[in-house]
Design a protein around this nucleic acid. Sequence first.
DNA 1: GCTTGACCTAAAGTCAGCTTTAGGTATTAC
DNA 2: GTAATACCTAAAGCTGACTTTAGGTCAAGC
Lengths: 146, 146
Amino acid sequence: MYTIGEVSKLFGLPVSTLRYYDREGLFPGLERSSGIRRFTERELEALRVIECLKRSGLEIRDIRRFMDWCAEGSSTYRQRLELFEAQKRAVEAELERLGRVLDMLDFKCWYYGEAIKDGGEERLTGLQPGDMPEGIRAAYLRAHGL
Amino acid sequence: MYTIGEVSKLFGLPVSTLRYYDREGLFPGLERSSGIRRFTERELEALRVIECLKRSGLEIRDIRRFMDWCAEGSSTYRQRLELFEAQKRAVEAELERLGRVLDMLDFKCWYYGEAIKDGGEERLTGLQPGDMPEGIRAAYLRAHGL
DNA sequence: GCTTGACCTAAAGTCAGCTTTAGGTATTAC
DNA sequence: GTAATACCTAAAGCTGACTTTAGGTCAAGC
């Protein structure tokens, strides 16, 4: 059993955020003793799932819906599975987009490294992909969707 | 040369967003003919960079600062390089976090698949990592930071 | 007994990033 | 000539996710 202050430290989240999550219904079964919230291992796992679903792009209201499904019992397993499968696809898509972002950043790092060496961008502005070093060319082409 | 409507279609961004970006100073050299914005290849590349920096976690005001550096010329190459290097580190960190999110989602997909097969969570609630299949155990442990 | 610190609430405030509204110009299509 | 369409501005409005504020309870330490 943990107080809100302990959970705050464990997860590195402000107390105000935990109270906000509770207000929004993200801890449906959270118990209290004389008004004070008592977090159990169940709420800690809920919090791990909340962080996971948030990072995967879900909004608070949708996380709430998921938590309500959990409280509803075995009749909602299918919906819960489908939610996780959908978020998996969303995260895989995001990973791919971030990969292309990284390609652009790699290209730009190379570009400014060269610009600094040259003292200007004259040589670089006319550059065709064919004139770039192997790895940079690949990154450039992926970043520009070619 | 492109009108704002053409750029909107090319990038899949609302016209209102492009005007907002312009208002926020993200196209420092954008020209106009009789009041109408004329986007050139330079603005298209700027837009690619904007999307890249935004996805990498930068705020509009910081992107604006970068665009101002570009307008300032060769004296800012170093700052620009450092910005891209910092964003590269940020994206690499985000990729790792997303990897752990994916681990959690993999675990939860497996979990609910099993719960559906079993018709309940009784067997699963007592489950130790040692009882899980190979790949799922690994995902579970990574997702839970163990 | 009184201060400190951890908890509580309801309600208002904040911030980023857009989007919408209201009103206007200029060109093309009929 | 008038209706539709694409452009323009300034300013207000919106949304999600918190955070802050103002005011209160309660137990522990001095």
